[in-house]
């Protein structure tokens, strides 16, 4: 059996053990606190995992829509919004997601929540290649009412970070041939301008997703 060769070694081993123990306790405390957060909020069972425990306030930002207009936090207020972050040079995930969102919107119809509207927004995280003009044709292909938005890299980074989305450019063979890793979820913003939920389609049929969105809107009441 291994035995410490000196008192000094023994002391080091004891200190190391104490540090490990403290680290474990701190970790456990964190886990316990996170769990208490989850338990404290009582969303209906079918909405847990979609809705955040609490709506998240967003800081203002300034991007540009496909008409060249300012797109900021105020544009997210007064109606429901569903955001998707992608890029038009994406051949698979983005058209799949936007096609899905188009299907969901056609099932929601014109006025699913009375006078409160819902807008579908494609935010391009590729401002270098995705001009407002290109985004205009892109979003209209999926739904005539969808908005295309992009802007400065730093603002896009800030907004994706705020909502818990993600993107990173993977440099390709040439300056114009690159791909972007990005979130594949949809971000649901309430008429208050607060982020309330994250929807991952995961092969959900569009009609079910439309029903879920109606359910969330009814449940949240647009007031929170």
């Amino acid at each position: 059996m291994w035995a410490p060769r000196s008192k000094k070694t023994l002391a080091i081993v004891l200190v190391a053990m104490a540090v490990t123990l403290i680290a474990a306790l701190v970790t456990l405390a964190h886990i316990a606190r996170d769990r208490s957060d989850v338990v404290r909020v009582h969303h209906p069972a079918d909405l847990v995992g979609v809705l955040l425990p609490e709506p998240k306030t967003l800081d203002d930002f300034e991007l540009t829509d496909h008409q060249g207009g300012v797109f900021n936090l105020a544009r997210l207020r007064g109606q429901w919004s569903i955001l998707f972050f992608g890029y038009t040079h994406c051949p698979d995930v983005c058209p799949m997601a936007m096609g899905f969102l188009g299907e969901v919107f056609s099932r929601l119809g014109d006025n699913p929540f009375g006078t409160t509207k819902i807008q579908g927004i494609f935010i391009s995280v590729d401002p270098k290649r995705d001009t407002p003009e290109l985004l205009k044709g892109y979003v209209a292909f999926f739904n005539p009412g969808f908005l295309g938005v992009t802007g400065k890299e730093a603002v896009l980074k800030g907004l994706t970070h705020q909502v818990g989305a993600y993107y990173a450019t993977n440099q390709g063979g040439s300056a114009d041939a690159y791909e972007i890793t990005h979130s594949s979820a949809f971000f649901l913003i309430a008429p208050t301008g607060k982020l309330v939920g994250i929807i991952s389609p995961n092969n959900t049929p569009p009609e079910m997703a439309a029903e879920k969105i109606k359910r969330i809107v009814n449940y949240m009441g647009g007031a929170k």
Partner: peptide, 12 residues
Amino acid sequence: VRAYPPGIQVTA
């Protein structure tokens, strides 16, 4: 083949 929007350079 996935139909693609105007001006778009890629599809699958």
